[in-house]
Design a protein around this nucleic acid. Structure first.
Length: 302
DNA sequence: CGGCTTTGACCAGCGC
DNA sequence: GCGCTGGTCAAAGCCG
């Protein structure tokens, strides 16, 4: 992916949401858009006044809550971790990450389609696979039965591009790879990453019908930094039986006020971002570099 | 025994 | 068209 493309992507996408909500579904019922808005006023003020952020103009052009759909800048609560370095959102998205999110952005057509596609896809998946089985069987009579079934089950509809869910990534200084965030995750894959000696792990939310995924990898340039990318939106609250959730919930209530700490965000995001050497192969972080500090991305490009 | 991780294989997308 | 890479699947094994 080129820097140009990333920049282009970024300028199409401008939404701020409460990343904190990703990690903390608060008690007291869902918080709608209205109730969440004040949390960001300070943050927006900062963005609009900052000269370091290339995206401030796009943010300030639209009233908050009506901002475009895709790009989200966020701060993550360093819950089970030492220190959240920075965070970034990439990809298409609409609503806040969780039902209880403090801020939910307005839906756009594209995002709406994506969302409905996601649900439909999920519901139709089994039917699709059945249909595909029939199709392929008819066309490929000579193949081994087992192999056939295997291949068919994995195949997707031709001509259909893989749908991407809203994504955001953040970097955390931590010794543990898989950071506890209150949700239950099942690891479904691990891949070696090009230009990195550290593998990337793929996790899926274990809650039924919740399609949220996350990728976890270590920065090859600074192994103490864990890069976590979330994709999709939780359709549920914290699972009650989650390991360590009670501890985390207690922790969050005592450590975090109910509003977004934009000053904390500034402490964690701004300086480290400009000091960090981000992995060059990391799409979302390239996006981050490009959007946060244009000079930074240049310094990391070959 | 259920839930989870590991891991090799497979597939799609993209660049050349 | 081919090769590379990221993403996903699913069988096997592990663990509480």
């Amino acid at each position: 992916m080129s820097g140009e493309k990333l920049g282009e992507l970024f300028h199409h996408d401008s939404t701020i949401f409460d990343p904190y909500s990703l990690f903390s579904l608060r008690s007291g019922g869902p918080q709608g858009l209205e109730s969440g808005l004040p949390q960001f006023s300070g943050f927006l003020d900062y963005l609009q006044s900052s000269t370091d952020f290339g995206f401030t103009s796009s943010l300030s052009q639209e009233p908050f809550g009506l901002i475009g759909d895709r790009h989200k800048v966020c701060k993550a609560e360093p819950r089970a971790t030492e220190n959240v370095i920075s965070s970034v959102f990439a990809g298409g998205g609409t609503r806040a990450m969780t039902a209880n999110s403090s801020v939910s952005s307005s839906s756009t057509e594209a995002a709406g389609e994506e969302e409905s596609d996601k649900n439909e896809k999920n519901e139709e998946k089994e039917q699709e696979e059945e249909d595909e089985n029939k199709d392929v069987k008819g066309a490929d009579d000579g193949a081994d039965e087992d192999e056939k079934a295997k291949t068919v089950s994995k195949s997707r509809k031709k001509g259909e591009k893989r749908q991407r869910q809203p994504r955001f990534a953040f970097m955390t200084k931590s010794e543990v790879d898989h950071l506890e965030d209150g949700y239950r995750w099942r690891k479904y894959g691990q891949k070696a990453v090009k230009n990195s000696r550290y593998p990337r792990s793929y996790y899926r939310c274990t809650t039924q019908k919740c399609l949220v995924k996350k990728r976890v990898e270590r920065s090859h340039e600074d192994p103490s930094i864990v890069i976590t990318t979330y994709e999709g939106q939780h359709t549920h609250h914290y699972p009650s039986n989650v390991r360590g959730s009670s501890h985390m919930l207690a922790n969050q209530q005592s450590s975090m006020p109910p509003s977004f700490h934009h000053d904390l965000f500034l402490q964690t995001l701004t300086p480290p971002l400009q000091q960090l050497n981000l992995p060059a192969n990391y799409h979302d972080l390239l996006l981050l570099q490009n959007s946060i500090h244009p000079s930074f991305i240049n310094s990391n490009q070959p």
